[in-house]
Simulated scan of single mutants.
Amino acid sequence: MARYTGPVCRLCRREGTKLYLKGDRCYTDKCALSRRNYAPGQHGQRRTKLTNHGVQLREKQKVRRYYGVLEGQFNKYYDMASKQQGVTGENFLKILERRFDNIVFRLGLATSRAEARQLVVHGHFKINGKKADIPSMLLNVGDVIEVVEKSRASAKFKALVENHKATAPQWLSVDAENLQGKVIAEPSREDIELPIEEHLIVEWYSK
């Protein structure tokens, strides 16, 4: 499975905004963006004015990195969104929100999307009672996610039950004590906290 394996803090610095790729560290003074608020590399501190093309590209890359999706799959999601009824940009973000790894993270069952992806691949979750290990699966209303029985006794998930603080968005319900969550509605545009101008991504793909 192809994935980015480089230093993730560089990605936040390149996009100039927190993408919350390292979980709890992103909320502390150790955050690389807080300490070095400029792009990585020897020319990172130079001020450059982006063209319209550059602005659209940066927005696309920001969203792609936020959800941890590689270019090919990102393109497929956009094609799916463009064929659906409604506003293409919003449809696109809703598809990304419905990814299995994103939902695990949004339920508070992982500290970052990268950790959620790893937990999914290692087989720690079930969907509707059946083991599932594909992070890119798109979940639907009514789907139930739960930690498999043999994983519940692990230190990771025991600590999660004791210290669960995450608040799930309105389209998800979570039962932290039983390490379970459910998709109760379609995600809405208002549920996405990262400042995203999705119209720029639509303009990028419309060329």
Results as ranks from 00 to 15, higher is better:
126 K>E: 14
49 K>V: 10
31 C>D: 08
108 G>A: 06
62 K>M: 14
117 R>C: 04
20 Y>N: 08
183 V>I: 15
79 D>M: 06
120 V>Y: 02
29 D>F: 03
37 N>G: 12
113 R>V: 00
71 E>H: 11
154 S>N: 09
169 P>T: 09
31 C>H: 07
79 D>V: 15
82 S>I: 08
88 T>P: 06
144 V>K: 08
147 V>P: 00
110 A>R: 02
180 Q>C: 14
164 H>V: 12
164 H>L: 06
141 V>T: 15
12 C>R: 08
83 K>C: 06
176 A>F: 14
75 N>H: 13
122 H>F: 01
194 L>C: 09
117 R>G: 01
165 K>R: 15
74 F>D: 07
206 S>T: 13
122 H>N: 08
152 R>Y: 11
86 G>V: 12
15 E>L: 07
27 Y>I: 08
12 C>W: 03
6 G>S: 09
103 I>S: 02
15 E>I: 13
106 R>W: 10
140 N>P: 00
178 N>T: 05
175 D>I: 14
92 F>H: 01
4 Y>N: 06
106 R>M: 10
84 Q>E: 15
5 T>I: 14
75 N>Q: 07
86 G>S: 07
88 T>G: 02
96 L>I: 14
45 Q>T: 14
112 S>W: 01
186 E>V: 07
136 S>F: 10
58 R>M: 08
18 K>N: 11
174 V>W: 01
14 R>A: 13
64 R>T: 00
73 Q>G: 00
158 K>D: 06
82 S>G: 05
106 R>P: 08
167 T>F: 06
126 K>D: 11
86 G>E: 02
62 K>W: 09
114 A>Y: 12
49 K>H: 05
10 R>K: 15
19 L>P: 01
149 E>V: 15
197 E>Q: 14
39 A>C: 10
101 D>Q: 07
162 E>S: 12
202 V>M: 05
29 D>G: 13
154 S>D: 11
151 S>E: 11
33 L>M: 11
195 P>G: 04
21 L>E: 01
116 A>E: 03
62 K>A: 05
132 A>R: 15
167 T>L: 08
87 V>C: 01
103 I>R: 01
152 R>I: 01
67 Y>A: 02
11 L>K: 09
162 E>L: 14
126 K>W: 04
13 R>D: 11
196 I>G: 02
176 A>G: 05
116 A>C: 12
111 T>S: 14
105 F>W: 13
190 E>D: 15
135 P>T: 02
114 A>W: 08
59 E>I: 10
97 E>P: 04
21 L>D: 01
81 A>Y: 06
201 I>K: 00
74 F>R: 03
100 F>P: 04
20 Y>M: 03
61 Q>S: 05
86 G>D: 02
144 V>M: 07
19 L>H: 03
134 I>G: 00
117 R>W: 10
7 P>S: 10
164 H>K: 11
37 N>F: 15
49 K>L: 02
63 V>E: 00
164 H>I: 13
54 G>Q: 07
52 N>V: 04
55 V>A: 04
61 Q>Y: 02
62 K>S: 07
3 R>C: 05
89 G>H: 03
196 I>Q: 02
36 R>D: 07
103 I>T: 15
194 L>W: 10
136 S>K: 11
